[in-house]
């Protein structure tokens, strides 16, 4: 079986819908899927809050919005490092790109540390997945997002290890998607209501 592209399957022609986007088209299939899943979860959270206003008001009052805001700044900073890595890769400076990716990974780990501190405080106060509806949804939503942060860090580390420009742009696109999801999730879960 030859690896040569068949007619109509060149890089230019195979994915016309995804032309102009950073990274590999399959990553965008994943990103759109993730957006759809998180949008559904956040809408379910908003509807559940409307149906159980007292439970959600009491639960939200126990969250540490300051740590959430700190994590927003941390993730934005990590996204900035990743964006600089992508720009460096595009200009052929792979060494610089790897340094920026390393910085993005380190700052991304800081997000997980802050999230761990927040979880420890809530668990110490007796909250968990099997608590009331608010904390069940809170841990599901933020835990699912934290898993994506872990996956994003692994992807950034892999492309930082040894990868070409397209791989770096692909990994960075996923990281920005995780960043974008948090930017919507933080106000909906911590602030509105």
């Amino acid at each position: 079986m030859s690896d040569a592209a068949l007619p109509g399957e060149t890089d230019e022609g195979a994915w016309p819908l995804f032309r102009g986007l950073q990274g590999h088209p399959m990553m965008w299939v994943l990103i759109v899927s993730e957006f759809a899943v998180f949008a559904a979860m956040l809408c379910a959270f908003a509807i559940a809050r409307r149906l159980n206003p007292d439970v959600f008001a009491a639960g939200q009052a126990q969250l540490h919005a300051g740590l959430g805001a700190l994590n927003t700044a941390v993730l934005a900073t990590s996204g900035w490092c990743a964006a600089r890595a992508s720009l460096a890769a595009a200009s052929g400076r792979s060494g610089v790109a790897h340094s920026w990716l390393f910085a993005a990974v380190v700052v991304g780990l800081c997000f997980l540390v802050v999230k761990g501190v927040e979880y420890a405080g809530l668990v110490g106060a007796g909250h968990g997945l099997e608590g009331d509806l608010f904390f069940t949804l809170y841990f599901l939503l933020t835990g699912f997002h934290a898993l994506h942060v872990v996956l994003g860090i692994v992807i950034l580390a892999v492309v930082a290890w040894a990868a070409d420009r397209e791989a770096i742009e692909t990994g960075v696109a996923f990281w920005h998607a995780v960043d974008l999801i948090w930017i919507v999730m933080f106000p909906v879960v911590y602030l509105l209501g």
Binding site: L21, A173, H176, P187
Partner: peptide, 25 residues
């Protein structure tokens, strides 16, 4: 609430256009 949602939309626009690269999409 209005300030929070306006900030959300502003941040999402910046991340989408300038980080995710949707400006050139």
């Amino acid at each position: 609430d209005v300030v929070v949602v306006a900030a959300l939309l502003g941040k999402a626009r910046i991340v989408g256009l300038d980080f995710l690269g949707l400006r050139s999409a």
